[in-house]
C-alpha cells in the first residue's frame, strides 16, 4: 500500500477529528508533500463547509403549541389512546367509556370462543378414533405420529418455512434496511421450525416419504443458518443464506410440494377415513 492510499484511509478520521497525534503528524506530513491528496482533502473539507450552509425553515410557535393537540387527536382517531387517564384535573376521562365494548359483544365473543374450543377438542381427540385413523404401520411406541398429524405438521412446516425464506430471499441488502427485516422474529421462528424438523424427519422416514424427508432436511439446514445469524446487520451471513436457498433449489421444491401435495397421500395412505366422515365432523 503506498503513502497516498494510507493517507486516504484516514481522511474520515481527519475530517471528524479523531486522529491521534502521531497519525495526525504523518498525515499532515504527507499532505505537505502530495498535491493530489492535499487537493482531495481540501475538496472534501470545502464540501463539508458548503453543506453546513444549509438552512432549515423553523416552524412558528403556533406549530409547537398545537403539536400535542394534533398528535392527541390522531391517536384518538386511530384508537390508540385506549388506556384510562388515572387522574387529572383537566376533564373527566371518557376514553375508556368510548372504547368499552357493549355486553352483547362479550357474549358473542364468548360463544365464538366456546365453538373454537369445541372444534379444537374435536380435532384433537374425537377425529382419530371416530375416523378410524390409527398410527402408521411403522409406529414406534406411543410417540409415533398418526398419519394425519404427520401430514398436517409437514404441510405446516413447509408453509411456515416458506414465509421465513421469502422474507430473507426478497431482502435487498443494497436498498433495504436490515432493521425492517425483523430478523429476531425470523430467528425465533426458525428455531421453532428446526426443533420441529427432527420429529418430522423421523416420522417421514418411518412413513417412507423420502422426498418430503429430504425437503424437510434441506429446509432445516437453511433455517439453522438463519437461527444462528449473529447480528441483524450481518450482510455477509444473510447473503450466504440467500445463496444457500438458491443453490438447493428450495423454492422450486416447495412449489412442487405445494402443487403435488404429497402430504395428502400421507394422510390417506393408511386406514384413511372417508372424506365424508371428515366433513361430518366439521
Amino acid at each position: 500500500m503506498n503513502e497516498c492510499q494510507r493517507c486516504r484511509q484516514v481522511f474520515a478520521d481527519a475530517l471528524y477529528g479523531s486522529l491521534d497525534d502521531s497519525r495526525r503528524r504523518s498525515f499532515e506530513a504527507h499532505l505537505g508533500q502530495c498535491d493530489i491528496c492535499r487537493e482531495e482533502y481540501a475538496g472534501l473539507r470545502a464540501t463539508l463547509q458548503d453543506m453546513k450552509k444549509r438552512e432549515r425553515t423553523e416552524p412558528d410557535p403556533a406549530f409547537w403549541e398545537g403539536y400535542w393537540e394534533r398528535l392527541g387527536s390522531r391517536m384518538h382517531r386511530e384508537k390508540i389512546l385506549y388506556q384510562p387517564r388515572p387522574s387529572g384535573p383537566r376533564r373527566p376521562s371518557f376514553d375508556w367509556l368510548r372504547f368499552r365494548m357493549p355486553r352483547w359483544a362479550f357474549q358473542a365473543g364468548a360463544a365464538v370462543l366456546l365453538v373454537a374450543v369445541g372444534i379444537f377438542i374435536g380435532r384433537m381427540w374425537l377425529l382419530p378414533p371416530s375416523a378410524g385413523v390409527q398410527t402408521a404401520v411403522h409406529t414406534r411406541g406411543a410417540t409415533a405420529p398418526s398419519s394425519l398429524e404427520l401430514a398436517s405438521r409437514t404441510q405446516n412446516y413447509v408453509e411456515r418455512s416458506q414465509l421465513v425464506l421469502m422474507a430473507i430471499v426478497n431482502f435487498d441488502r443494497e436498498t433495504d434496511d436490515p432493521y425492517t427485516l425483523d430478523l429476531p422474529y425470523k430467528q425465533q421462528l426458525s428455531r421453532e421450525l428446526v426443533q420441529e424438523a427432527g420429529w418430522l424427519k423421523q416420522g417421514l422416514a418411518d412413513a417412507r416419504q423420502r422426498r418430503l424427508q429430504e425437503l424437510v432436511a434441506d429446509l432445516e439446514a437453511v433455517l439453522l443458518q438463519i437461527a444462528n445469524l449473529e447480528t441483524p446487520g450481518d450482510m455477509f451471513a444473510i447473503e450466504l443464506v440467500q445463496t444457500g436457498v438458491q443453490s438447493r433449489g428450495l423454492f422450486l421444491k416447495m412449489h412442487l410440494a405445494e402443487v403435488n401435495r404429497p402430504w395428502d397421500d400421507l394422510g390417506t395412505r393408511t386406514e384413511t377415513p372417508p372424506k365424508t366422515d371428515k366433513t361430518k365432523i366439521f
Binding site: F11, L15, Y16, S18, G43, L44, T47, L48, M51
Partner: peptide, 13 residues
C-alpha cells in the same frame, strides 16, 4: 458510521 459519512461526503462533493 464514519465510513457512511465519508461515502456521503464523496457523493456530495
Amino acid at each position: 458510521v464514519k465510513s457512511l459519512l465519508f461515502r456521503a461526503l464523496q457523493k456530495l462533493r
